[in-house]
Design a protein around this nucleic acid. Structure first.
Length: 214
DNA sequence: GACCAGGCACATC
DNA sequence: GATGTGCATGGT
């Protein structure tokens, strides 16, 4: 059976409609959120971002200048706050060193180069890098996350042990290379994962994908 | 109280 | 290359 990537998208879009991702006001806020949401419920990330906002710290310069301990205290609700403060600092150093803290300069760079650079930052892995590329810089990169793997594995399109790159390749090869499509697709997968394809108490019998995939 | 959430780095084999 | 562990908060 081939992978009906487009049929799945249509089914999800028909069920849920546009998801308006990423939930952030600016591209820089997307980058911050991408690091804060690592293995963390989004509601907790929102609290951390609100703290940054309240302290006028939601700019590259402010975060760059803020002491790491102060930053850690503000992002505390997002969990792993010490390690995430380090990771944000690592990213900001890179951001200023390579792109003068400018989103526009960064967006002008080549996708493959950007991905390599982001992955070289300690604390930024494949999903975080790709989330930044897609949702902050509008690059056509398919984002794979825990929901993506779980959903496709449960429906038999990949194995549970599939590597990030393998899942990403499968999706990329099965769809037209469009940032708008990849943006909506990933957001819809997260929606499906949260509402139906949950780890605990999955609701397979009323899953919108049930008829489309099996 | 256990389990889970939009990962990642590092140690070890 | 595969597998195990630490990092931590807040909701179910």
């Amino acid at each position: 059976m081939s992978f009906p990537a487009e049929a799945i998208f249509k089914k999800l879009y028909a069920s849920f409609g546009p998801q308006a991702w990423w939930p952030a006001k600016t591209p820089f806020e997307v980058m911050v959120g991408a690091i804060l949401t690592q293995n963390t419920a989004w509601a907790n990330v929102e609290r951390a971002i609100a703290n940054l906002q309240d302290n006028n710290a939601l700019s590259a310069r402010a975060l760059y200048l803020m002491p790491r301990k102060k930053l850690a205290s503000l992002i505390r609700p997002a969990g792993y706050y010490n390690i995430k403060a380090k990771r944000l600092k690592n990213f900001l150093k890179f951001f200023f060193r390579e792109y003068s803290g400018s989103v526009r300069k960064m967006a002008g760079a080549d996708i493959a180069k950007l991905r390599r650079q982001l992955l070289s930052v300690n604390g930024i892995g494949e999903e975080t890098a790709d989330s930044i590329l897609l949702y902050a810089l509008n690059k056509p990169v398919f984002v794979v996350d825990a929901y993506t793997k779980r959903i496709f594995a449960r429906h038999g399109f990949i194995s549970k042990e599939a590597l990030y790159q393998q899942v990403q390749d499968l999706c990329t090869e099965s769809l037209s290379r469009s940032a708008r499509l990849f943006n909506e697709y990933h957001a819809l997968l997260v929606r499906l994962g949260k509402d139906y394809c949950r780890k605990r108490k999955p609701r397979c019998e009323i899953c919108p994908l049930k008829q489309a995939c099996s």
